[in-house]
Simulated scan of single mutants.
Amino acid sequence: MGILKNTLAIVSVIYSVGVFACDVQADKAFPSLLTENGVVVFDEAPIEKEPGDASADEQIGIEVSFVSCSDGAKKLIGKLPFLADTGKVRAAFFARAGQDAKESLFVIHSVNIRSDTGVKYSGDYYTVHVYQDSANGYVRDERLSTYFGNGGDILSDDYKDLVHVFPYKSESSIIEKLVSTSYKSWYVGAPVDLTINKKTSIHSSPVLADVTRMYLVAGDKVKQEGVEAGWLSIMFKTPKGKEIRGWIKCENAGGC
């Protein structure tokens, strides 16, 4: 009987420690995410001022951290971008980025553009951050973070029409992409040949304003060399064998 009591006491202590370490209060920025051995938390935190910055206003950013269940230790995963405003965490979730991969942490952050950037944004500016679980904790996955990228919806010069739509504003939009054939081909590095479906301007970067005088027409064949935030990096070979590289919108070549 004494042995049983001692065993129960030990189990009770272990359970209490585990509960205490993982008993994280509700975060101001976004609800915590429970993992197998800890909790991912989203904290609002003051941003360190640049040297010589004498402004009185305190800038608040959002930090993503991991809290261990075993000892309560807290480790910073990453800081979300401060773009003249704290912004909001629109979504945070775990998803498998590849068939044999562990689940990755996806965070979608957005901020309202308050200053004149020269771009006529309609709504918020979004950034997608992906972190891989490793032996050293969660680390930023640059390849996946670049794939989903950043951006916002953009209006025409007369503010009447949308000329560009950022595709990854929600958890569902990313989950849908992760199971697509185009994403799976990109993930494993398979060669992708595409056909242009309408007259398409070539851009020097995945930015709407960086348009060149070059264009492609329906039926042109291109090779996909990269993907970023709904844009395709392509190579087009002219009938004379000259290689032309640039960026086009995904939807103008059958999606990506």
Score class of each variant (00 low, 15 high):
residue 103 E to H: 07
residue 69 C to Y: 05
residue 146 T to A: 15
residue 190 A to N: 13
residue 131 Y to I: 02
residue 188 V to L: 13
residue 235 M to F: 14
residue 205 S to V: 04
residue 124 D to M: 01
residue 92 A to R: 03
residue 255 G to N: 06
residue 69 C to A: 09
residue 111 V to W: 04
residue 122 S to W: 08
residue 43 D to W: 06
residue 180 S to M: 12
residue 256 C to G: 10
residue 52 G to N: 06
residue 105 L to Q: 08
residue 222 V to S: 04
residue 118 G to K: 00
residue 149 G to T: 01
residue 41 V to Q: 10
residue 237 K to M: 11
residue 255 G to A: 14
residue 19 V to R: 15
residue 221 K to D: 10
residue 179 V to I: 15
residue 111 V to I: 14
residue 64 V to G: 02
residue 52 G to R: 05
residue 140 R to C: 12
residue 195 T to E: 11
residue 157 D to C: 07
residue 3 I to K: 12
residue 49 K to L: 09
residue 1 M to S: 14
residue 56 A to F: 13
residue 223 K to H: 13
residue 116 D to N: 11
residue 29 A to E: 09
residue 239 P to C: 09
residue 166 F to N: 00
residue 45 A to Y: 11
residue 53 D to T: 09
residue 14 I to V: 08
residue 113 I to P: 03
residue 142 E to L: 07
residue 119 V to S: 02
residue 251 E to T: 07
residue 182 S to R: 12
residue 129 H to C: 07
residue 208 L to W: 10
residue 81 P to A: 02
residue 33 L to E: 02
residue 16 S to D: 11
residue 204 S to N: 06
residue 64 V to W: 01
residue 46 P to W: 02
residue 129 H to W: 05
residue 129 H to T: 12
residue 247 W to E: 07
residue 2 G to N: 13
residue 54 A to W: 10
residue 212 T to H: 02
residue 144 L to I: 11
residue 13 V to L: 11
residue 184 K to Y: 07
residue 66 F to W: 08
residue 149 G to P: 00
residue 144 L to E: 06
residue 50 E to L: 07
residue 150 N to M: 05
residue 254 G to A: 12
residue 171 E to T: 01
residue 195 T to F: 11
residue 228 E to G: 00
residue 231 W to H: 00
residue 97 A to Y: 11
residue 20 F to S: 13
residue 247 W to Q: 05
residue 228 E to P: 00
residue 122 S to I: 10
residue 1 M to Q: 14
residue 197 N to Y: 13
residue 72 G to D: 06
residue 124 D to S: 04
residue 181 T to W: 10
residue 33 L to A: 00
residue 213 R to Q: 13
residue 86 T to V: 02
residue 91 A to Q: 11
residue 55 S to F: 09
residue 159 Y to F: 15
residue 236 F to M: 09
residue 184 K to R: 10
residue 115 S to K: 15
residue 134 S to P: 07
residue 154 I to G: 00
residue 92 A to Y: 05
residue 4 L to K: 10
residue 229 A to L: 09
residue 134 S to R: 12
residue 13 V to A: 08
residue 167 P to V: 01
residue 103 E to Y: 10
residue 48 E to G: 13
residue 171 E to F: 02
residue 27 D to V: 01
residue 47 I to M: 11
residue 133 D to C: 12
residue 19 V to W: 15
residue 69 C to Q: 01
residue 66 F to S: 06
residue 249 K to P: 05
residue 205 S to T: 05
residue 60 I to M: 13
residue 113 I to F: 07
residue 99 Q to G: 12
residue 66 F to P: 04
residue 136 N to H: 10
residue 119 V to T: 05
residue 130 V to S: 02
residue 177 K to S: 14
residue 95 A to T: 08
residue 148 F to R: 00
residue 172 S to F: 05
residue 16 S to H: 12
residue 80 L to S: 00
residue 237 K to D: 06
residue 44 E to S: 08
residue 5 K to N: 15
residue 136 N to P: 11
residue 96 R to A: 15
residue 81 P to Q: 03
residue 58 E to V: 15
residue 225 E to A: 09
residue 41 V to I: 13
residue 200 T to N: 04
residue 247 W to N: 05
residue 13 V to N: 03
residue 115 S to T: 14
residue 121 Y to R: 02
residue 238 T to V: 08
residue 77 I to G: 08
residue 121 Y to P: 01
residue 186 W to A: 03
